[in-house]
Each structure stands twice: as structure tokens, then as C-alpha cells.
Design a binder for these strands. Sequence first.
DNA 1: ATTAGGG
DNA 2: CCCTAAT
Length: 574
Amino acid sequence: MVSHKCVEEVGYKSYLLPANARAPRSARKRRSIEKTISEDDNMCAIDLLATVAGHLSFESGSSIDKLIEDHRVVTQKSVKEEFLEEEKPLMPVALSGEDPYQGSLSPCGFSSVITGKVENEADGFSYSGGSDACQVGSFSEDIKPDIDGDAVVLDARPNVVVSLGSSSRTEVPSNGNCSSHGVRDDVNLFSRDDDENFSGYIHPRVTKNSPRTVPRIGDRRIRKILASRHWKGSSRHADTKPWRNYYLHHQRSYPIKKRKNFDHISDSITDDYRLRTKMHRGSRKGQGASFVASNSHVKLRIKSFRVPELFIEIPETATVGSLKRMVMEAVSTLLSDGHRVGLMVHGKKVRDDNKTLHQTGISQDNTHLDSLDFSLEPSSELPQLLTSHPSGHASGELLPVCQAANMDIVLESDNHDSALFPSDSLGKNNVTEDSKAMIPVALTELASRPPCRKLKRSEQQQQQAAQRRIRRPFSVAEVEALVQAVEKLGTGRWRDVKLCAFEDADHRTYVDLKDKWKTLVHTAKISPQQRRGEPVPQELLNRVLNAHGYWTQQQMQLQQPETQSQTTEALLIL
DNA sequence: ATTAGGG
DNA sequence: CCCTAAT
């Protein structure tokens, strides 16, 4: 969140000498930006997903390592907002833009639902949210996790599609029109590579000067980093109340636990691989492999992940790109924070984890498979409706959150990589045999294995070494706030800049601000054609240049004895 | 804990 | 963004 509280104090292009504002550090307010959290809890959901997805995707020769490695990998298909009138009071969206400071996003629902669909037709790829694709981004990095032991290497490109359903459904769809006598083996999540990176979205506190274009955020360097870097870090920027963050203006960071995820992928895939190896030798990578049906296994294709009731509040002056990023972050958070998987058969929850699939009615030769639903549920915490006022102060206050827009977010897995799936395996001829299942492990483990097992110490250490904060491009509003703060405070007092303009933006450290200023200065110096990401208004860049020039000069003069007249003169000029 | 600068 | 050295 960007605050402009220092703006009023100084006019445009007015600068203060550094000596003025510097307060003794002892007197400065301290804020604890980072909180500790149980790593295990935090990673439950994503670990689980990693496990599930790992199984599913590996089985079919693809991988979702990219998704797991960074769940921003999403393509948004269509967006439609619907607001429930019955749901009470407040207008869910600040359409007027008059109070852009209160924009927030929060999931309203208690649980999210993953809908498992069993499909056997090639047309199962149809989307539920309409046909007008609206891509907003994805990854393009080629991540190849190295897996020990069986040395399984994945290099497929996951393509995950997230869409906002065109209808607000509160019930778990049961996919009735999908015949279920057979299932394909192409349970896949893979990321569409459209050269647009994602990261969490920071809700702009000020939106009147919003950019006019859909932002393009790209940091190709990430590619290199992701591929080669050995990440280190700790459990910083964790938060046990993920949803609260949305009401706190997305101030928290959600580090991507890459290594951790890889570990789990490795584990699950390794297990899977071993299991499968027993059945079919020689199909290590699964690519193009024609799977031989095996008895008493259920093969499932999870087509969509349903995440109902994400609450999004955003000024109408915000950009489409902003909205997309908000949704993106919401989905990311949903995927990454402590959730467990629930299972429903024909709409009934299956609570007994010890039941066999067969006992539950999940078997290769029945018709229950078409109404098998997986749901994401909060794993431990109480309903994640904790929030706080937009002012960002008192935390833990309860707000009537559920007044809102009722939007469905469907995370649909899809597969367009025909190379991985020979056409004959997609055709109808193999239906019967396909129905006899591959994916032997995934479902079983979903139902029985504790998704979050205790990690060995070595694993934990590895996980801890995987922290990297998600990339959160500065919005124009944030840049504006930063520029104004620096105009006022100078370039050497990032802590004060933080306090002045980003006090409520916990995810923006003074180092971040310093770095951003650095890049801003650079951006301002290069030609517009070379700039990437959401375009920063030239006017802002000019101010960046001005301020930068001024303060660097100021710094010079501080080193060399300065005269009073010089100082005064500088002030007058600026 | 901050600052400054390279990676 | 991360990492480090130096305050």
C-alpha cells in the first residue's frame, strides 16, 4: 500500500535538506515486517498439490514443475464478475474510485473446491468459462528439476489455465454431461508459455494516475535465476493468516518455496515412477508412452480446480492488468497456503480416509467417477475471514467479508501438447482400456496419505534454502509515491522513505525501495523502447531524474565542504 | 538495523 | 530480488 502522507508536506519539486528530517533511530518506530510461521503448515497445500499434480502429470508424461515451482503460472481465460445481492450490504466494488485506498481482495469463501473430472472425450478440453480467452500471463522458463535416485528429469511444459467462471456457482459441479465409462490418462497441468510473467499484485492505493495500458511485466533475468540459482533464505515473510493479507492490501509476501516444492515433486514422482516402473518398464519419461491398462486401478483426469468466492474489490480506475494480477495473486495464495484436500463422491464428502477407493465407490468400472470432486479446504486455521481495516492498523479485526462478489475461479488443467499425447491415445478407441487406470498413486495417496508428512531435517534445511520472495512489480501508484518520497527525503534515507510512503506495505522493504529507485533511475535514462513492464509515465521518470540529480549533487556537496549560499541556491532552484 | 552497491 | 560489506 502506498501512502502519500508525506506528499502534503512538500510541494512538487520541493526538497528538504537531509539534515532536517532525520530522527534518531532510537526514536523511530519499529515495525516487525516478518513473522514466523510454521513452515509445515504453510506448505501443506502446495505440497499436496505438488504431490498430486506430480503424480498426475508424470503419469501422462508431462509435468507441472513450473506450476509448482511457481504457482503464478496461470493463464486466465475469461473474467466475469457477479455480485450477490442476497449477500448483504456493502457494495463490493469501489466503482467510483473515490476511495481507492480501500481496495482489497479477499477470498470470501471458506473453502475452495477442486473439481475432479473424469473425462474420456477429447473435447473434454472445453472451458467452462466461455470461449474468449484472455491471456494474462505465464512463464516461459524451462525448469528442469533434477531428481535423484531414479534420475527422472522433467522438462515438459505445464500449462495451467485459470479462469473466472462466467457463472457464479456455489455448488460443486458434478459434470453430469461427461460420460464416464472411460478416462484418459492425460491428467495434465501445464503452463502456457506466452512470455508474460506473473507475480503477486500489489493493490494500488492510489489509482487516479493509473496506467492506461495493460502492464507487461517481464523480467527475463528471472529465467536465468530460476534455472541456475541456488536459493537461500529463511522463513521470512510468512504469515499464518493468508487471507488477511488481501485485506491488508496485499502487503505480505508469499515467497515461492521452490526447492521445497521440488523436493516434494521429486519424492512423489520418484514414488510414482517406481510404482509405475513395476508395471511398465521403459517408459521413464512417459512421453509418448502408450500405457497398458492395469487391473483395479482408477485413472482420473482432474480437469478443473474450482475456487469459489474470491472477493475482489478494485477501483474502476485500475487497469485490467491490475485486476488480472489481483486474481492471479489470489489464486496463488489459495494454492500456496495451508489447505487440505477434501474428496466428494456424488456430492457427498468422504471423510473416512481409511476407506478404500473401491469402498467409496471409486472404481474403474462404475459411474461414480464423473462426479468425483476434490476440494480445497482450510487445513487448520479457522475460517480465513480475519481481516483488518484498510488503514492497515489493527489486525485481527473481523469484517463482514462475505458481502461480495461471488466469482468462481476455475483452475483448469488442459493439455495441448499433442507430442506428449499421440492422437490415438486421445481418440475414442482407447476408452475402455484407458478406464483401467494409470495414476495409481495419486488418488490413493490423496485419500490416505497425510499430505504433509514430517520432513526430515535435511529436507527442512533444503526447504529453508528455497525462499525467494515473489516478484511484485511496482505499480505506477507506488512509483509515484516513491518518487515523491524521494523528492522529499533524498536517496540515502530509505528507511525514512519506507516510513513515509510505504509504511503499510509490508512487502516493500527499504531495500526494495532503494532497488526500485535504482531501476527507476536506470529506466529513466534508457529509451522508452528498452523499457519493460508496466510503463511508467514519462512525467514520473522526469521527476526521478530530477530528484536523482538533485540528491546526488547534494551528496557531493556534503562530502566537500559546502557553503551556505550554495545550499540556499540549490533549494531555490528546485 | 540501515545503507550502499554488486549480482 | 538477493547477498554482502560496512556502518
